[in-house]
């Protein structure tokens, strides 16, 4: 009898504790239901609103001031993962709105954390073009770039050519009729081919040539002020986000290679390359250390050898030593040893 009573009490206590725990548990954000929604699709560059509605799992009441964190799953430069976009708090209706700018074509995968388990939202972006545009710069003001210069210089040269024509006229001035001797000399001068091949025509010709050069310069000049029309970059490919040059392999080399790369630098910095060669290939002064064992390399660096200085731990840390060895190991592969 007492046992049964005890059992009944225990059940009641357990139920109460359970209810209490359940109630408080909801308040501790363990049992929320999060409904998320996003527009069907968006265009590139558009800012869409991601809405998340948070309800208490038990009571169904909206939860106020619940914190939701938004992540986006992406891959870039060979590194894949989630990037944190930001956080949003729910209002008194339990609704949190997050502004999300669409910067990527294709499927967007948004993870929202805050509920019992992450909610995943996925939607496509199919339309849109280049988002980033260079600023207008000097082209904003008509004429500021080159037109003013063209106009001023052009006008000046037109007038100069008029002057040149006037000078030609001077040289072809009519001979004085009253002085026969001079008229004769004048005639002689004309017959010796100075009529057209004289200084006046030369001056004018030079002026026309210089003016032509200036015009050519102005015409050929690329309008590249302010990164507006980046012409002239036909030497190498352009990196498009999608397309021929998407840089598919773009990313950081793995850690060993990175270590070796640092080691390569240290190999030069500490002067090893001076005797052993930049690629640790060995020279007439010293042979290649590439095939040496780790212990041997360590012992030689720390204690030195005839013809080679020693490096203490203060001069060359253990990390650096390891990096140098990583480089040597890499060099061993490259040298085929």
């Amino acid at each position: 009898m007492t046992v049964r009573r005890l059992g009944r009490w225990a059940t009641i206590v357990l139920l109460v504790v359970g209810f209490v725990l359940l109630g408080s548990g909801g308040a501790l954000a363990d049992h929320w239901t999060v409904e998320v929604s996003a527009p069907e699709e968006g265009a590139l560059g558009e800012t869409i609103q991601l809405t998340a509605t948070v309800h208490d799992a038990a009571t169904g009441e909206p939860v106020e001031s619940a914190e939701l964190v938004f992540f986006s799953s992406v891959a870039f430069a060979g590194v894949g993962g989630d990037i944190e976009l930001g956080e949003a708090l729910t209002n008194d209706l339990g609704v949190a709105v997050f502004d999300y700018e669409l910067r990527k074509l294709g499927t967007h995968t948004i993870t929202i954390e805050g509920g019992d388990e992450p909610n995943i939202l996925s939607f496509p972006v199919t339309i849109g073009g280049q988002l980033y545009q260079s600023p207008e710069g000097i082209n904003l003001i008509p004429g500021a770039g080159g037109w003013v210069v063209t106009l001023v210089i052009g006008s000046i040269w037109v007038i100069m050519i008029i002057v040149g024509v006037a000078v030609i006229r001077v040289s072809r001035g009519s001979p004085p009729a009253d002085n026969e001797a001079e008229a004769e000399e004048d005639q002689q001068e004309r017959s010796t081919g100075t009529k057209w091949l004289n200084t006046a025509t030369m001056v004018t010709a030079v002026m026309v040539i210089v003016a032509g050069g200036i015009v050519a310069l102005l015409i050929r000049s690329p309008n590249t002020h302010h990164n507006r029309d980046p012409v002239g970059y036909d030497r190498s490919a352009v990196a498009f986000v999608e397309g021929a040059y998407a840089y598919p392999d773009f990313g950081l080399a793995d850690d060993a290679a990175a270590e070796a790369e640092i080691g390569r630098g240290l190999f030069v910095t500490f002067g090893c390359a001076g005797c052993h060669g930049v690629d640790a290939e060995g020279t007439t002064t010293a042979k290649s250390p590439a095939s040496a064992s780790y212990d041997w390399v360590r012992q030689v660096i720390r204690n030195g050898q005839p013809g080679m200085p020693s490096y203490s731990e203060q001069e060359l840390s253990d990390t650096q030593l390891n990096e140098i060895f990583a480089f040597l190991a890499e060099a061993r592969g490259e040298l085929g040893g």
Binding site: A166, V167, R169, V170, G173, S174, P176, A200
Partner: peptide
């Protein structure tokens, strides 16, 4: 340039 000091030349100059 064949300068003779004629009125024509002076005018142009």
């Amino acid at each position: 340039i064949n300068w003779r000091g004629t009125s024509d030349q002076k005018r142009h100059l």
